[in-house]
Computed example of a mutant assay.
Amino acid sequence: MRETPYYSYVVGELPEGCKYCVRGEKLVLFVTGVCPRNCFYCPLSPWRRKDVVYANERPVKSVKDIIEEAKIQDARGAGVTGGDPLARLSRTIEYIKALKEEFGKKFHIHLYTTGILADEKALQKLYDAGLDEIRFHPDLFEPNSKFLQREIENMKKAFDFSWDVGGEVPAVPGFGDRIKWFASLLDNMGGRFLNINELEFSETNLRNLLTRGYRPISDESSAIKGSLELGLEILEWGEKNTSLNYHLCTAKLKDAVQLRNRLIRMAKNVARPYMEITEDGTLRFGIAEYEDLEELYELLVEEAGVPEEWLYINWEKKRIEMPVEVAEELADAIEGDVKFYIVEEYPTWDRVEVERIPLN
C-alpha cells in the first residue's frame, strides 16, 4: 500500500477511470436521480433525487449540452452516475454513444450501478455502446437485503464482456467484514479493482448517519470518524489476501485535487480577457453594481475614459464586469451609489461566487 500524490491510497495501480478523474479530465454525467435502492448513506441533494440530468453542474436538456460541457472541460472521459444509470437505460446508451461518436473510442467512459438492473440484455447494450469500465455497488450495508443476491448474480454476467469490471463502495464503519467479503468475491470472479470511498456527511444523509451513531472527524470536516481508518484496514487486508487493485478515495482528494483540476481545465476555456485565473481554478475580476447599467456603462466609457473592451455588461447578474485593476481605480474615483467589488467565481455553468471583497 502506498500514498498517492492525490491524498489517497492505492494497492497495485489506480483503476483506469480514476486516473482520468484525479487529473480533472472526467466529465461527471449524472443520468438520473432514480434508483431502485434507498441507501441510508446516500449523499444526493434533494433536487437530484428526481429524474433529472446534469453534465457537471449544467442541467441537460439535450445531448448538445453534454457535448458542450465536455468541450469546455477538455474532458478525456466521463463517469456515468446517478441514482442508477440503468434505471434509464435508453438514455444512458444514447449518451455513451454520443460521447464516443464525438470524441472517439479513446474517450474513456466508466459507469456506476447497483447491479439490480444489470441483466444480460442491459449489459450487452452497454458494451455495444462502447462502455469501457463498469463499477458495481451492491447492497452490503442493509441486513437481509432483498437486492444483494440479484446484484451479485448480475455482476457475474458482467465478466462475459471484455471491459474492466470492479466494485465501488463507501467505507462504512462497522461493516468491514462485509466489504472484505465482497472484495474476496470480486477477486474470485476475476475483478480488476475495488474502489473505496471515505464516507461523508451531506445535507440529506446527516440525520440517518447521526441516528446510527456516526460522527464527523471535526467541526470543520464532513468526513465521518472511523471511515478513513476502515479504508486503510481494508487495503492492508486486501494486499495480503486478494489480487485486486485497491484505491481509497479520500474526502480531501475530491475537494483539493479532483474538483480543483477540473476547475483549472474549465477556467482556461471560459475566462474572458478581463478575468484572472487563480491557482485554484477560480475566476477573479472586478464588478460594478448600479441600478441603471446603461447609464453606468456610458459614465465609465465617456466620462471615466475606460476602453469598451475592458467592460462587459452582465444583464443576468445586473452588473458590469472589468479587470481588477480598473475596478480598484474607479472605486477611488467615482462617488455616489455605484458599488465596486472584487469577486471570485467558479468557472462552472452555475458560476458559484466563492468570495466578494468590497472596494468602496
Results as ranks from 00 to 15, higher is better:
Arg262Gln: 14
Tyr274Asp: 11
Asn208Gly: 12
Leu232Ala: 02
Phe285Trp: 03
Glu236Gln: 11
Ser218Trp: 10
Arg272Gly: 01
Glu291Arg: 08
Lys254Pro: 08
Ala288Ile: 10
Glu276Leu: 12
Lys252Ile: 14
Gly238Cys: 05
Ser227Asn: 07
Gly213Ile: 07
Glu239Phe: 04
Arg319His: 13
Thr211Leu: 09
Ala288Met: 09
Ala288Glu: 04
Glu316Pro: 10
Val301Pro: 10
Asn208Phe: 02
Lys268Asn: 07
Lys252Trp: 10
Tyr297Glu: 14
Leu230Ile: 03
Ala271Tyr: 04
Ala304Glu: 14
Gly226Leu: 08
Pro273Asn: 11
Ile287Met: 05
Val301His: 10
Ala271Cys: 14
Arg262Tyr: 12
Asn241Ile: 08
Glu295Tyr: 08
Val301Lys: 13
Leu230Ser: 04
Glu279Gln: 13
Pro273Ser: 11
Thr211Tyr: 07
Phe285Arg: 03
Thr242Asn: 02
Arg212Val: 09
Glu276Pro: 07
Gly238Ala: 11
Glu233Pro: 11
Leu296Asn: 01
Asp255Phe: 00
Lys240Phe: 05
Leu248Met: 08
Trp237Gln: 03
Val257Met: 01
Ser218Gly: 12
Leu232Ile: 14
Asn314Pro: 13
Leu230Glu: 07
Ser243Gly: 15
Gly213Cys: 05
Leu244Ser: 08
Arg272Phe: 00
Thr242Trp: 03
Leu235Tyr: 09
Tyr274Cys: 10
Ala304Met: 15
Tyr246Ile: 11
Tyr290Pro: 07
Lys252Met: 14
Asp292Ile: 07
Leu311Trp: 04
Lys317Asp: 14
Ala256Gly: 00
Leu300Asn: 07
Ile320Cys: 05
Glu303Lys: 15
Ala267Arg: 04
Ile277Pro: 08
Glu295Thr: 04
Ala267Asp: 06
Glu289Arg: 15
Cys249Val: 06
Arg319Val: 10
Ile320Leu: 09
Glu309Lys: 12
Tyr274Pro: 15
Ala267Gly: 12
Lys254Met: 03
Glu233Trp: 00
Ala251Gln: 03
Lys318Gln: 10
Ala271Leu: 07
Leu311Phe: 07
Leu228Met: 13
Arg215Asp: 02
Gly231Tyr: 02
Gly286Pro: 07
Asn241Cys: 00
Asp255Gly: 04
Asp280Gly: 14
Arg215Phe: 15
Glu289Ala: 13
Leu311His: 01
Arg265Ala: 13
